[in-house]
């Protein structure tokens, strides 16, 4: 039983990373109707900024803040310069464009830092804390706490601030929002910036475990997409819950089903996802699925 709880908590922690990326994907999708396949590559690039800074002796917390700011600017800039041209057009073309960005950004990261993985410092000490006989790692608990705080902050932003209201309005109906004087273009840039910042957070939290490399978040991105679709692309809560679910299923399968093990466990969430989508094509929480990939 104790082992089971440990596996579940570690699964939630992994899922929280997917959840942050999934939330970024949902944010972008709600604001611009696009699926950003470059979300992971943007996050990795920002994480590399933190990596370079820590290697230069900057404290991790400052490096992380700088990476967040870098991600925000990168996201806003990409929206303004590249993505803007594809919004409201043919979604298939937009998908190709974001995949192009994925390749380009991965290439840029590799050009600076190479493809081999580098160690990355962690916010959390090694080791475990004993909670009622269950040994939980500081890393898992810390990751969960930070991402929960980030999600609550986002919720407050969207529900209780004027900026959040404006972002929801633009996501809902940009033409009409403009007629009320909302600076639609700037709000879309902010939306992309926030999504990218969230991605950077995921990258920084997962890098100590995976080691940082240009392809570090490739798998995580696939899971995040799965979570976003499973949760319903228009539902932030759905995406997070689905991501936690995927993380837990992945970990449980790896821990308990011998034939599966570490190599095959990545396939289990997809098997589950396909079954769920056959039963509920709009996802667990969504109104309707608009993915055409």
């Amino acid at each position: 039983m104790q082992y089971f709880i440990q596996v579940v908590v570690d699964g939630v922690a992994t899922g929280a990373i997917y959840g942050a990326l999934a939330l970024a994907i949902v944010l972008v999708n709600r604001a611009t109707g696009l699926i950003n396949f470059a979300q992971g590559a943007m996050a990795v690039m920002a994480t590399f900024v933190a990596f370079a800074l820590t290697r230069a002796g900057v404290p991790l917390i400052a490096a992380a803040l700088a990476a967040f700011a870098f991600a925000f600017v990168l996201g806003a800039l990409l929206e303004r310069v590249v993505v803007r041209r594809f919004e409201g057009g043919d979604p298939d073309i937009a998908v190709v464009a974001t995949i192009g960005l994925l390749v380009l950004l991965t290439g840029i990261s590799a050009a600076f830092f190479g493809y081999e993985p580098h160690p990355f410092p962690s916010f959390f000490p090694l080791g475990t804390v004993n909670l009622f006989g269950v040994f939980l790692s500081f890393r898992s608990l810390g990751t969960i706490v930070i991402l929960v705080v980030a999600m609550v902050a986002l919720q407050v932003l969207f529900r209780s601030t004027k900026l959040g209201l404006a972002m929801r309005a633009v996501a809902d109906n940009p033409r009409s929002s403009a007629l009320s004087g909302l600076p639609v273009s700037r709000l879309l840039m902010i939306g992309w910036g926030l999504a990218a910042g969230l991605g950077a957070l995921a990258g920084i939290l997962v890098a100590p475990q995976l080691f940082i490399s240009p392809g570090m978040l490739d798998f995580a991105l696939v899971y995040a997409l799965a979570a976003a679709i499973l949760g319903g692309l228009d539902s932030p809560v759905g995406a997070v819950v689905a991501a936690a679910f995927i993380g837990v299923v992945e970990n449980l399968a790896g821990a308990y089903i011998d034939v599966i093990g570490d190599d095959l466990k990545i396939a289990v969430p997809f098997a589950v996802m396909i079954v769920i989508l056959i039963v509920r094509p709009q996802g667990l929480f969504g109104r309707k699925v608009v993915v055409r990939v």
């Binding site: 004027k162 929801r168 109906n173 009409s176 929002s177 909302l182």
Partner: peptide
């Protein structure tokens, strides 16, 4: 009409007062 369908009536009105 151009209302904001997923926003509440109150939020629609607040968006109107945005500036």
């Amino acid at each position: 009409r151009g209302t904001l369908p997923q926003l509440s009536v109150r939020d629609n009105l607040l968006v109107g007062a945005y500036q």
